[in-house]
Simulated assay, not measured.
Amino acid sequence: MAAACPLCAADGGRLVLRTPRWRLIHAEGAGFPAFYRLVWNAHVAEFSDLDRGERAELTEALALAEQLIREHLAPTKMNVASLGNMVPHLHWHLIARFEGDSHFPAPVWATAVREPDAAQLEGVRARLPALESAMRERMASAR
């Protein structure tokens, strides 16, 4: 474990699924109920630090997580990014975006352009248990 790395010390959100190499967590941000992170368990800063097999496994997990979010929530757009500027620990953000969200079409880290659609937020939240059940079932068996 790297000293002072929050993603080494803790899951980094509500754990959805843990495998020997990676974990999927729910990291809901204010106004973004379908905000997930796929975190590589070992302390690695960059994607290119992984070997070929590890990169393939992580890429497949990322693609499957995105696919399941799209199937269950039908977002307007998916934002998928590996930023990690604040935490030197490899992780990918998966954020389902909807036209009624507070920032759309700007990034979630930009200034809000409207009040979020409360009914839309609650509708998304209501579908998360089924999404996460599918994630646990399909992602665990796809390793």
Rank of each mutant, 00 (worst) to 15 (best):
L7Q: 05
L7C: 05
A10Q: 09
A10I: 04
R14W: 12
R18V: 11
P20S: 10
P20Y: 13
W22R: 08
I25C: 07
A27E: 10
A27G: 13
E28P: 01
F32Y: 15
P33E: 03
A34S: 12
A34R: 04
F35Q: 00
Y36S: 05
R37G: 05
N41M: 07
V44T: 11
E46Q: 09
D49C: 05
D51G: 06
D51I: 11
G53S: 15
G53D: 14
G53R: 13
R55K: 13
E57K: 07
T59D: 15
E60V: 10
Q67P: 02
L68M: 03
T76N: 10
K77C: 06
K77A: 11
L83S: 01
V87R: 00
H89N: 01
H89D: 03
H89P: 05
H91I: 01
L94Q: 02
I95M: 02
I95E: 00
E99H: 06
G100N: 03
S102T: 11
S102H: 04
H103E: 11
F104W: 14
F104T: 10
A106Q: 06
P107F: 14
V108R: 01
V108S: 06
A110K: 00
A112S: 12
E115C: 12
A118V: 12
E122C: 11
R127I: 09
P129M: 11
L131C: 09
S133K: 15
S133Q: 15
A134W: 05
R138F: 04
A140W: 11
A140I: 09
S141T: 07
A142W: 00
R143T: 13
